[in-house]
Design a protein around this nucleic acid. Structure first.
Length: 422
RNA sequence: GUGGGUGUAGCUCAGCUGGCAGAGCGCUAGGUUGUGGUCCUAGAUGUCGUGGGUUCAAGUCCCAUCACUCACCCCA
């Protein structure tokens, strides 16, 4: 092979792709049950949408975007995250002028130019849900519940919900100044000192032990919250408790994207290594105005589907082969039987049965082996003898019983058998 | 961008102080002329990542390079 995928691109092929499909479905179904509607939005956007939305002080914008100039000279960026684009679409199509909140979800690839690592890719997959148009803390709790229920429906258990608030335009500046005062007195490297001025909250997120030790006594936002933010945060905490969703207060939790305010949260998986965040989100009440829209509060979350797949694998042990296998496998034997098998298989498929057949000139032994590997419960054999007799031979691959059934009744026979075992 | 590790069959890997390229799994076929899963037998697939160097001799030692990977940073 002379070509391989570009560095850091996350791809899925069988059998592992079945886990990806499961992960995506779990979140989509959870969101649908909460009456979120699907949207599909641009994979690339005007670069300035992300610069203004995600924020110039974020690392994502400063050094991780796939930006380029299109043939027409437009400045384009492959989406590094979903929220800015989804909100842009909501505003563009005037969804916010209808019933509020606007609740939507989507999924697909996102792009960040970073050094690849376990659970971190340059092209990666996210599921994203957003509730736009209300400040009600109920919806904060709802988004968390939608994500939480999806994790649980995937039978994930080894994760923790970390909850924090980042304050708002009233109280965050005060806290930010206090934090900067504290951080400026520390002995830190040049990059980190620069971060104190640009985005001081992020310094709290530094994992290096020497930095951790120094910031242990840093002031926390919870002690600086204004009345409104404190009430909002307390309500979210109470709601989560009443929903039976366990969480940990994480006073140091911050988000890398500038638009977050008030409620912020992250789901952290215990078995995943360095990139342990399997989902995260928060409120972005100022984002709409940042990108030129009206004042419009919102909250949402994104889930790293690649990391969900890793989490499933780490919790369930060996890579579970959970491809939905075939139910019926057709075996043609000899010239002139292939068309009969294909038409029977097609008939079954139209009735909703997962059915496959042997292709090429495989011998009976090879075809039976293929039937076995397909996972099918029944093999349907048509050879010259059956064709002449107007029957098909159906073998139950589980207990090796086989019998001849009239060809015209074969599909119904199989459908009723499969109905019994379901 | 910074640092560590690893590159040998389709996959997982072994290969000692340099001396004929290996195993398991998988794949194909046969044992069984029309029957899978177990078992037995046989077979196919290699630029030992790439380029250079040392040596009578390099998968093995040295240099460079590329790729992959883990961690920092960052984040889903």
């Amino acid at each position: 092979m002379s070509f391989q995928a570009p560095k850091g691109v996350s791809e899925y092929v069988p059998p592992r792709s079945a886990l990806f499909e499961q992960a995506l479905n779990a979140f989509a179904q959870s969101a649908r049950r909460a009456c979120y509607a699907p949207v599909e939005t641009a994979v690339f956007e005007d670069t300035s949408l992300f610069v203004r939305g995600v924020g110039e002080s974020s690392d994502v914008v400063r050094k991780e975007m796939y930006s380029f100039e299109s043939r027409g000279g437009d400045k384009i960026t492959l989406r590094p995250e979903f929220t800015a684009g989804v909100l842009r679409a909501v505003l563009q199509y005037n969804l916010h002028k209808g019933a509020l909140p606007v609740k939507v979800f989507t999924s697909g690839p996102a792009f960040r130019y970073e050094r690849p690592q376990a659970g971190r890719y340059r092209q990666f997959y996210q599921f994203d849900a957003e509730a736009i148009g209300t400040e009600d803390p109920l919806v904060d709790a709802e988004t968390i519940a939608v994500a939480y229920d999806a994790y649980r429906s995937l039978r994930l258990e080894r994760f923790t919900l970390l909850l924090n608030t980042l304050g708002d335009g009233n109280c965050r500046p005060v806290y930010r100044a206090a934090l900067q005062d504290f951080l400026r007195k520390l002995d830190l490297d040049a990059d980190t000192r620069a971060r104190i001025e640009i985005n001081p909250l992020r310094v709290l997120d530094d994992k290096r032990p020497e930095v951790r030790a120094q910031t242990a006594a840093a002031p926390y936002i919870v002690d600086y919250l204004c009345e409104g933010c404190k009430a909002h945060h307390d309500t979210v905490r109470e709601l989560l408790t009443s929903l039976g969703i366990p969480f940990q207060d994480a006073p140091r939790l911050v988000r890398g994207l500038d638009y977050y305010m008030r409620t912020t949260y992250e789901f952290d998986h215990a078995l995943l290594g360095a990139q342990s965040g399997i989902g995260g989100g928060g409120r972005y009440d100022g984002l709409s105005e940042d990108i030129g829209g009206p004042s419009l509060p919102g909250i949402g979350f994104a889930v790293g589907l690649d990391r969900i797949v890793l989490a499933i694998e780490s919790e369930r042990g060996a890579t579970a082969k959970e491809t939905a296998g075939c139910q019926v496998f057709g075996v043609p034997l000899g010239d002139g039987t292939q068309a009969d098998v294909l038409s029977l298989i097609t008939k079954l498929r139209r009735a909703g049965v997962r059915a496959d057949m042997a292709f090429g000139s495989r011998g009976l032994k090879g075809a039976m082996k293929a039937a076995d590997r397909s996972g099918a419960r029944y093999a349907v054999l048509i050879g010259a003898a059956e064709k002449n007799a107007g029957t098909v031979r159906i073998k139950d691959l589980k207990d090796a019983d086989q019998q001849d059934v009239p060809a015209t009744a074969a599909a119904d026979w199989l459908l009723s058998k499969l109905g019994e075992t379901q």
